[in-house]
Nucleic acid binder design. Structure first.
Lengths: 150, 150
DNA sequence: CTGCCACTTCAAGTCAACTTGAGGTCAAGC
DNA sequence: GCTTGACCTCAAGTTGACTTGAAGTGGCAG
């Protein structure tokens, strides 16, 4: 039996047992059964956990992640929605690239205050508008849809 | 005087007044003074808010963001650290690209369970290891350093 | 001068995502 | 047969990032 005890799964995935139990409680993962009291997990759970980790990195809530490939890799949202999510993700990736550039800039540029540096200004300003969460907020900059991320 | 009332700043940035006060309280932004009781903000605050939004998208905590370009665009962390952050960001970007690909895959591939699809497996498995937060967790997959993100 | 209304403060509440702790169970090795 | 240690449950606590509500203030249009 190639089944994994929670301790082993935890060690292999880097996710603490308490979190694994919590994930199971909220339906993100499922154990195949019990050995006595102990949960036994199939090896595919490792893949699922990798996906969950990715989803969290992207700032999706556990609810959203469950909708995308929760419990069995069977998405319960329509494919159009999936593509919308992917599109949003692309937006986010562009924003991250902007931030990386801004970070490199402040690490390098000797200017007193970067808020005045025209290069920096241009770098950041283009990133205004567009991020995850659906309808855009009233104005330009936008908040980055509350999710307590992490 | 080109100073902004909190209501105006809120409207232009898309950030609610309550949040702006909170940001000021924790030292992320600063008002130039008061008009009566009312806070007045300089226009550069809009740039700072754009940066904060970017930082949040990337999953940085408000503390980290303050360290990077808090209060005046003067980073109080060493530049080596800045580059390290940028490197981590690049890792994260790669992870996001993986997730986007995975998302497109499940939207397109007609397979019953994606967990079994070899293409999908390969897609996700390579994303194991590496994400933000410093020392890597015991094993492969890793969690994505707690910060509630929201 | 009056009233309005956008602002103010401060304490408390909320929410997601976990973690912690107390008290209990049970399969396996001695 | 007993102990051990990794597991179990369930309730409560924690943290970050805000939001909400009550009670007050003050610039300015009429």
């Amino acid at each position: 039996m190639k089944f994994l005890d929670i301790g082993v799964l935890s060690e292999r995935s880097g996710v603490p047992p308490s979190t694994l139990r919590y994930y199971e409680e909220v339906g993100l993962i499922a154990s195949v059964g019990r050995h006595g009291l102990r949960r036994q997990y199939g090896p595919e759970t490792l893949t699922q956990l990798a996906l969950i980790s990715l989803g969290k990195t992207a700032g999706f809530s556990l609810d959203e992640i469950r909708g995308m490939f929760g419990r069995d890799g069977v998405p319960d949202v329509p494919r159009a929605m999936m593509h919308a999510r992917a599109d949003a993700l692309e937006q986010q990736i562009r924003r991250l690239v902007t931030l990386r550039n801004a970070l490199r800039h402040v690490a390098e540029c000797p200017a007193e205050s970067h808020m005045d540096c025209p290069k920096f200004q241009r770098l950041v300003r283009v990133a205004s508008h567009a991020q995850r969460g659906g309808a855009q907020p009233p104005a330009s900059i936008a908040t980055g849809g509350r999710k307590p991320r992490r």
